[in-house]
Simulated scan of single mutants.
Amino acid sequence: MPDRDPLIRVTAMPADTNPYGGVFGGWLMSQMALGAGSLASRVGKGKAVVVSATDFAFPGAMAVGDELSVYCEIAATGTTSLTITAEGIARERNGEATVKVAQGTFKFVLLDENDRPREVAL
């Protein structure tokens, strides 16, 4: 397991599978977006919305019951945006074996109380 704290941790359930019985890539992307959004809101100190999601890859597979941990870090800061890389690591249900199952990049724009872009103040 990486030597860092996950932004979120969740267990894959039967409803999260695709027609072939594997965990659906869309579910993985949504969990990663939640983790990245948590970091964007915390660092940006307010409302942050996704404006793009790119560079996704699914190098491994996870099964129902496996635990997904989402790790994120800021890759770049713009005038009103934060670019965040996300990585999903699955841990087998009844053990300690882990595998990277997803990675991708999200761009968030920070918004003010009127939902207008505001500057990043780090």
Rank of each mutant, 00 (worst) to 15 (best):
D66C: 06
M62E: 08
A76R: 12
M62K: 04
A63C: 12
V70W: 02
E87T: 14
P59V: 07
A63G: 10
L82G: 08
I84M: 13
T85W: 03
L68C: 01
V64Q: 05
T85C: 08
F56Y: 10
V64L: 09
A86G: 14
A75C: 02
L68K: 03
Y71L: 04
Y71D: 04
Y71M: 04
F58G: 01
A90G: 05
A61T: 12
I89T: 03
F58L: 01
S69V: 00
M62G: 06
T83E: 15
D55N: 14
D66Y: 05
E67M: 11
I89N: 06
M62I: 01
A61F: 09
I89K: 03
M62S: 13
S81I: 02
A61I: 04
Y71N: 01
V64A: 08
T83K: 14
A61Y: 05
A75P: 00
T54N: 15
D55W: 04
E87F: 10
I74C: 00
T80H: 13
V64C: 07
S69K: 03
G65H: 08
G65Y: 08
F58H: 03
T54M: 14
C72F: 03
V64S: 07
D55V: 00
G65F: 08
C72D: 02
T79K: 15
E67L: 13
T85R: 13
T77E: 15
A76H: 11
A57I: 00
E67P: 00
T79N: 14
G88Y: 11
A76S: 11
G65M: 08
L68D: 01
F58D: 02
A75V: 04
T79L: 13
F56N: 03
F56T: 02
I89H: 10
S81A: 09
A57E: 13
L82C: 09
I74S: 00
I84R: 13
E73P: 01
G88V: 07
E87H: 12
T77K: 14
S81R: 05
F56A: 11
E73N: 13
S81H: 05
T79A: 14
G78N: 07
E87W: 10
A61Q: 15
F58I: 01
T54E: 15
T80Q: 11
T79F: 09
A61P: 00
V70S: 00
A63M: 12
T54Q: 15
L68T: 00
